[in-house]
Design a protein around this nucleic acid. Sequence first.
DNA 1: CCGTTGTGTGAGTATTTGCCCAACAGACAA
DNA 2: TTGTCTGTTGGGCAAATACTCACACAACGG
Lengths: 318, 318
Amino acid sequence: MSKPEVTTTKLDDAARAGWLYYVAGNTQDEIAAKLGISRQSAQRMVSLAVSEGLVKVTLDHPIARCLDLAARLKERFGLKMAEVVPTDPGSNSTTLGVAEAAAAEMTRWLKSEAPIVLGIGTGRTLKAAIEQLSPIECPQHKVVSLTGNISPDGSAAYYNVIFNIADKIKARSFPMPLPVIASSPEERELLHAQAMIRPVLELSARANVAFLGIGDLGDEAPLFLDGFISRDELVALQRIGAVFEIIGRAFDRNGVPIVGLTNDRVASAQIPSRETATVIATAMGSRKTPGIAAAIKGNLINGLITDEHTAEMLLSGK
Amino acid sequence: MSKPEVTTTKLDDAARAGWLYYVAGNTQDEIAAKLGISRQSAQRMVSLAVSEGLVKVTLDHPIARCLDLAARLKERFGLKMAEVVPTDPGSNSTTLGVAEAAAAEMTRWLKSEAPIVLGIGTGRTLKAAIEQLSPIECPQHKVVSLTGNISPDGSAAYYNVIFNIADKIKARSFPMPLPVIASSPEERELLHAQAMIRPVLELSARANVAFLGIGDLGDEAPLFLDGFISRDELVALQRIGAVFEIIGRAFDRNGVPIVGLTNDRVASAQIPSRETATVIATAMGSRKTPGIAAAIKGNLINGLITDEHTAEMLLSGK
DNA sequence: CCGTTGTGTGAGTATTTGCCCAACAGACAA
DNA sequence: TTGTCTGTTGGGCAAATACTCACACAACGG
């Protein structure tokens, strides 16, 4: 009893310090005096509050340029939704900003009273987005993973985020206890036929909204880095013209699925229908730009969360 | 054309600087370098973004103590909703925290798809709350003022906030072009009978939710300070046992309306029904505590947004 | 034309903050 | 008991930030 109490008290104190700092506008010295601790401790509390994600900063000024780019993306590519966040010129992070924006967009969906089915892909961007997500209770919704969650080595795939999100939002979750890429087409069929998998696949087809990452298939392809495909397989995909993958499935520069190769063994669900669902890709960065462009061209997605620079590249026809 | 563009650009830049600072985590030096301005200018941009309210900080840790107090308030006083924010021990602000919380609660209501009627009172706390409100477009809703918006000197009452909120949320607004307190009971009847006033009064009775301030009737009563009642009138109210007012109407320590005196001339609408509407008071501070307690006792409100210290006072029976 | 006023700028400076480090307390095994 | 490990504390200091001031410049009115 004392153990959990201590932990809650600690985060409580951190929240209180954070509140005094950010909302009440106290300096750390004042907080220290008020809470009867040293300034350093106050500083630690505040920074704990920040690092624990208790403190959320949002900017609600619509930066004209970003809005404009978003509107042009929607117009030009016939997207249902588009969101553009500012680019930090110096940073080479591939999630900075889009993660926050994706979390905000998810929250908007989750706020819905009516039960929705939320499809979720995988990848670093989504992982970062989920981390930004504020816990909200929405037991009415269902979250379904669109990819397997087993790494080639048998461990849980690190960038599979279904558990994280389900935990945050207290919704029923439907993971896919499968490898991302099966060892053979036959094995994939076998796996998909399993009694515990079929309902998940069916649910994924009924998703109202899906958030997906886009992975490039360059020499540093995440799919390769994470060990889902071998270098030989990657090279073979590149040779045949694959430029990006979504939930493990490779596509060419026109957004047309690659025939054969690893695609025959990808155990992921299908991307939900763009007719009935909002399929949102969250991706930014020059490495992913060709992939995003291709995904749009192939009508694989109808929503996009990206940054200014990427948006410009996409619009310039690049 | 160039003029508005300049202004938007300025806030845009401020937002961008704020974004780089708070979201991207740059230092002001880095921002200065990236935007090609001096560090001081970068600092100015960031602080502009803050002071313009572009930057919103929220803490989403449920501070156990506050939750507990809120639950006890609801339980003890049979409230539909209660929210308790931390107290800043050193500050004597009467809005710090509750303004933000009230804005958040308003936002929750406004997010509703179904059209709602939002009644709004007056006062410093509400004014501060509206300033915290993020602009959202909700043309489906209606906002109705529960009090007149004319000062005794004929100017628009400063703490009447109906215009501010209508502007922020782009909803249809229904102000009451009336003095807060008429010069005689007869004049009040006459005013209320006007063709442009009657629909507003009817609308106010149909409010789904109302946000009200609670004004104390001590020697520094806001109603007196703002010139709506004279010192003699205030003293008379105090003599007869009035301890607080809501939208100009005075009540005693049991929440029972004062009979006669200024109450005969108060031109405000009735407080919406506690049966059909959520009537939320936003108030904190020791000066207002007796008034809050009385408002609860008299069943004038069924929702409360206050701070820790006030919540404790209320619960201690004080 | 000149003064006034308001706005924006950079320099300088005081305050505030982030972080490293040494000290220290409690847990636990030897 | 002692040593060690882990986690927490506060001092000190460099970096970062907020604020004040003087000045430049454009707009405005006399």
